[in-house]
Amino acid sequence: MNPTNDQTQGLYRLCYRLTNIIYPGWQYRSIELVRIDERTGRLYVLAGENLDFEIKPTGGYEP
Rank of each mutant, 00 (worst) to 15 (best):
N2C: 05
P3L: 10
P3T: 08
T4A: 05
T4Q: 00
N5R: 08
D6G: 01
D6T: 11
G10E: 07
G10H: 07
G10C: 11
L11C: 02
L11D: 02
Y12I: 10
Y12A: 11
Y12D: 06
R13Q: 09
C15N: 03
Y16W: 03
L18C: 04
L18V: 09
L18A: 07
N20C: 11
I21C: 04
I22R: 10
I22L: 10
Y23K: 07
P24H: 06
P24S: 12
P24T: 07
G25F: 14
Y28F: 13
R29W: 00
I31T: 10
E32S: 11
V34M: 01
R35Q: 14
I36H: 00
E38I: 11
E38W: 03
T40W: 03
T40G: 08
G41I: 14
G41L: 14
G41F: 08
R42K: 15
R42Q: 12
Y44I: 04
V45K: 01
L46A: 06
A47G: 04
G48F: 10
G48Y: 03
E49K: 12
E49C: 05
N50P: 00
N50L: 07
N50R: 14
L51F: 06
L51D: 09
D52G: 05
D52N: 08
F53L: 05
I55L: 13
P57L: 02
T58L: 07
T58C: 13
G59N: 13
G60K: 12
E62I: 11
E62L: 07
P63R: 14
